[in-house]
């Protein structure tokens, strides 16, 4: 029977990352990573002056 481990939050990175792993016989057999935060920047950009786009997209990540 596979054992499942969840690591959330993953620290020392920017953003909210979660890792799920399935472990069987001491080996990782399956794994998922997922971002736990969503702002919808693509949706926000729709219909705006294209010259404004950078001010939003550069803030995907401030690192």
């Amino acid at each position: 029977m596979a054992k499942r481990i969840t690591i959330d939050p993953i620290t020392r990175i920017e953003g909210h990352l979660r890792i799920d792993c399935e472990i069987e016989g001491g080996k990782v057999t399956n794994a998922w990573s997922s971002g736990q935060m969503w702002r919808g920047i693509e949706t926000i950009l729709k219909g705006r002056d294209p010259r404004d786009a950078w001010i939003f997209t550069q803030r995907f990540c401030g690192v």
Partner: peptide, 12 residues
């Protein structure tokens, strides 16, 4: 502080 914390997951 999530970005600066040494421990992850349950430890955090």
């Amino acid at each position: 502080h999530e970005t600066l914390l040494a421990g992850s997951g349950k430890q955090a």
